[in-house]
Design a protein around this nucleic acid. Structure first.
Length: 253
DNA sequence: ATGGCGCATGGAATGCGA
């Protein structure tokens, strides 16, 4: 079973790219973030033609998350991590017995901004929500966490030092999620590798060979036992009008 | 050096992403 996380940075702008990628890769589950559209605007037809069922929570212009699956999606829950949050940033569903949680953590803008405070509060609510889930079974909480957990996850740590994406309070909260009994799947499989999932357009990071690892699959102990690989499709970041994030695939046995 | 990009909205300039 393969479960993909991909921040597509607008599904309408990226529809053909995502369809082509899905047709070629045929993962069991695709978790999308940053749809940037409402449910009325979502291009269901192409995905339906490829055999994918869609569960989504949309929003005009910003945010928006979807779970696409070849197998039925059961027990869908939206409005994560807490219903008071007006933004469409979290959706969960159960597929073939695996609880799949798809998250789009707030960016945070800058450490001295209100958006940063919102990001930390959102992460606290996420910890509370995940803490209330059944973590004895097979659960994966994947998505765009907007946190590089350690300096090894930054190609240029000195550039980002202390800023949003790498600040201590954000990293503390990431570790807090792990302390719930979750494991960073890629890091568990490859403790020392330096791999990236996001490359800034503005500073031509991809072209310069620089990047950050901010998209993750957090898995329960039970699911970690099934993890065979985590694959970042760096090639998908190249070419015509790519997303600034690459698709990241969790491979289960 | 942190923007110089890309996308949505709306029909230009602005907000936002990370």
């Amino acid at each position: 079973m393969r479960i993909v996380s991909w921040n597509v940075n607008s599904i309408r702008a990226r529809e053909n790219r995502v369809l082509n990628w899905l047709d070629q890769e045929r993962p069991d589950v695709l978790c999308l973030q940053e749809l940037k559209c409402t449910e009325e605007q979502f291009p269901f037809d192409g995905f339906d033609a490829l055999g994918y069922e869609v569960a989504m929570q949309g929003q005009k212009t910003y945010n928006g998350v979807a779970i696409l699956s070849l197998e039925p999606i059961e027990e869908v829950e939206t409005g994560l991590p807490w219903p008071d949050d007006a933004a469409a940033r979290g959706i969960a569903g159960t597929i073939a017995g695996v609880r799949v949680v798809n998250l789009y953590v707030p960016n945070g803008s800058a450490v001295d901004s209100d958006k940063y405070d919102y990001k930390l509060a959102w992460l606290d609510q996420l910890a509370r929500w995940l803490g209330a889930q059944d973590r004895a079974g097979e659960l994966v909480a994947c998505g765009d966490y907007n946190i590089a957990p350690a300096d090894i996850d930054c190609s240029e740590p000195e550039r980002w030092a202390g800023g949003v994406l790498v600040s201590d309070p954000e990293r503390e909260r990431f570790r807090g999620l792990l302390s719930l009994g979750l494991h960073d799947a890629l890091r568990a499989l490859r403790p020392d590798t330096r791999e990236w999932t996001w490359w800034d357009f503005k500073t031509s990071m991809f072209e310069r060979g620089e990047g950050l690892r901010i998209d993750h699959h957090l898995v329960t102990e039970r699911l970690l036992a099934r993890c065979e690989d985590v694959v970042i499709d760096v090639a998908e970041r190249a070419g015509d009008k790519p997303s600034d994030h690459a698709p990241v695939t969790l491979v289960l046995g």
